[in-house]
């Protein structure tokens, strides 16, 4: 092997390393940094968040009302099979419940109170401060809004690669395996002014970005509050505003987040 070739190879080697590692890494790092500054430093930038009172949410009626409200206004279909049973494999859901053990696996230990294990926990997109789904999306169909910290979806842009589903540690994302309108038409019908989705795209909770702009609260929050005993079961607000309701609660109560160890910075807080 002659010397020039060796030199060239060295360079090519570094270049390939650059191609394969450095650039996505660098870019991901920059992305993360920009978000960090967004959340920790600049008070001007908002981060919307939600506090969920697990105990209050044990009321099934409340949870159903919240999920129903959300799924109705956003035309989220109930996917059923030929017999009319819920098709769990292809389900689309923005807000729903999971068992405590599945929601907070790190909190589970052998001596944990049995009743807690059986509790149903309301789950939805965590609108993470450092969302993995945003990092992996190859088309910027999902991104973190710097005005309010919502992890948004652009249904026009999504190519349906489902990388975000693989990346999301919370199972918050649903894919339209089938044509959703088919199920809406079979079920409650298409309602409201929110568009449906086309098949083959991923969707998830958007913190009701559409309603926020009209000065409304997220549909789930509004619906839950209307249920008797549902006051403050779901509380929504801006973390950057020290006087917001969410901050008032977070300052007072012991809250936990899902899988904090992964460093995604979830923005849904749970009161145990």
């Amino acid at each position: 092997m002659d010397d020039t070739r060796r030199k060239f190879l060295k360079k090519a080697g570094y270049a390939s390393l650059g191609i394969s590692c450095a650039l996505p890494l660098l870019d991901a790092k920059l992305l993360a940094m920009s978000e960090e500054t967004g959340t920790h430093e600049a008070a001007a930038k908002k981060q919307l968040a939600m506090v969920i009172d697990i105990k209050k949410c044990q009321n099934k009626q409340l949870v159903d009302a919240a999920a129903n409200a959300c799924h109705t206004v956003h035309n989220v279909p109930t996917i059923t099979d030929a017999k009319g049973n819920i098709n769990k494999e292809e389900e689309v859901k923005w807000i729903w419940t999971e068992k405590f053990a599945n929601t907070f696996p790190e909190q589970v230990h052998a001596r944990l109170e049995r009743s807690i294990l059986d509790e149903d926990v309301v789950v939805l997109c965590n609108h993470c401060s450092r969302p993995p789904c945003v990092r992996v999306c190859p088309t910027q169909a999902t991104w973190k809004r710097d005005t309010d910290g919502i992890v948004m979806m652009d249904m026009h842009r999504c190519i349906g690669c489902r990388y975000c589903m693989a990346a999301c540690p919370y199972g918050a994302r649903s894919f339209n395996w089938n044509e959703p309108r088919k199920f809406l038409e079979k079920g409650r019908g298409i309602v409201g002014e929110y568009p449906t989705r086309t098949k083959g795209v991923v969707e998830k909770c958007t913190f009701c970005a559409d309603r926020l702009s009209d000065g409304l609260e997220p549909a789930c929050v509004e619906a839950a509050n209307k249920v008797p005993g549902g006051k403050d079961a779901l509380v929504f607000g801006d973390l950057s505003d020290p006087n917001s309701k969410v901050n008032l609660i977070l300052n007072k109560k012991h809250t936990i987040c899902r899988k904090v160890g992964l460093g995604t910075g979830p923005n849904i807080y749970y009161i145990i």
Partner: peptide, 10 residues
């Protein structure tokens, strides 16, 4: 137009 794949007229 593929608008109508998602959008609809109430």
């Amino acid at each position: 137009p593929y608008c109508w794949d998602c959008h609809y007229d109430p």
